[in-house]
Each structure stands twice: as structure tokens, then as C-alpha cells.
Amino acid sequence: MSDTAPAPATAAPTPPKRSLRFSPRDIINVAIFAVIYFIVVFAVAMLGVISPFVMIVTLPLTPIVAGIPYMLFLTRVRHAGMVALMGVALAALDLVIGHPWQSALIIIVLSLIGEAIMAAGKYRSTWAAIWTYTVFSAWFIGPWVPFLLDPAGYIASYGLEAYGEEYAQSFRELVTVPTILLMVLSTVVCGFLGGLLGSRLLSKHFRKAGLA
């Protein structure tokens, strides 16, 4: 690796490599962290199966917990393109577990934004990493996208009107633009907390073990 030489303490940190060339190790890193990220998201969702009450706790917990592997991944990002590649990996996994295709697109777009944030932090800044993860965690809205695009249409397609106009009406009032914004906001806030937790755990566990 050419950029492992420590920069002089007074100078700016080593500039990131401008090239988009991925070393095999980069590719393997992206692949393994994408898999870990997804298994963590899945495992936490499975914890929710224990009981419905636990589920209420685990739902906001998911973006927080998933911050641990994602932040660890970001410490291994050394040049442009890796965050975007991670986005492609997660989008593929997202499609495979049956989430809507819009959700996969959202993941890629958010990863590109994250790429820009990391680039602004010269791929070394912890805060840039935290913000990257915060933005990225907005993807948790993904599975809801087709529903949110046309809630009335979706409900109508189930013929709920037959079970009471009042009920259908209340459903329509519940699923509105403010509710959507609230959902996005809550996942983003949880993502921010996840970024903080991830970076704290990095210094607590992984840096000591030489993994960060």
C-alpha cells in the first residue's frame, strides 16, 4: 500500500487516492461488510420475533445497531468509490430479500451522497463517517416506498372500503406526508445515534484488537 506511510503530524493528512482502481482486498472488504451489515439487520429483526413487545424496541434499534459494522467499514475506506460500491452491494442484497426495486435505487443514491460526504472529509474524518452513515440510514424508508407513493391506491386495492368507509378514511389520514417525513426523520436520527455508537465501539473493541 502506498498510502500507509504516516503523514507528518503538522501537515494535512495524506490525500486520498484519486483513482477508482480497487485492490482485491478493497473488493473483499466491501463484500464482507455488506454481508455482515445485512446479517446484523436481519438478526436484530429476528430478535423481534421473540415477542411483539421486543419488536417495538428492536425496530428503532436496527439502524443504531447496523451502525457498528458500517462505521467499521468506513474506517477501511481509503479512496473514492468504495462507499458507492458498498451501495451497489447492499442494493443487490436488498433486491434479493424482496424489497421493492425503488428501495434498491434509494440505497445507491444515498451511497453516492455518502461518497460525496466522505470525499469532503478526505476519507479520514470521523465526523464525515458519522454523517455518511446518518444519511445512509434513511434507506430504512425503502420498503415503504411503493406504499407511501400511493397509500390510497394500495388500500383501495385491498378492497378495505368494504370493511367500513370510516376505517379506510382513518387509514388515509394516518398515512400522510407528515407521517412519511416523521418516519424518515426517526430513522435518520437513529442512524445518527448508530454512527455515534459505532465510532464509540470502534475505539472500545475493534481498535484494540487491531481490526479498525
Binding site: 480497487f22 464482507i32 468509490g81 452491494a89 443487490a92
Partner: peptide, 9 residues
């Protein structure tokens, strides 16, 4: 990179 990565995954 994408082709290799998806295979590795």
C-alpha cells in the same frame, strides 16, 4: 469490481 464483489458476497 462489481462483478467480482457480487460473486465474493
Amino acid at each position: 469490481p462489481v462483478a467480482v464483489m457480487l460473486g465474493v458476497m
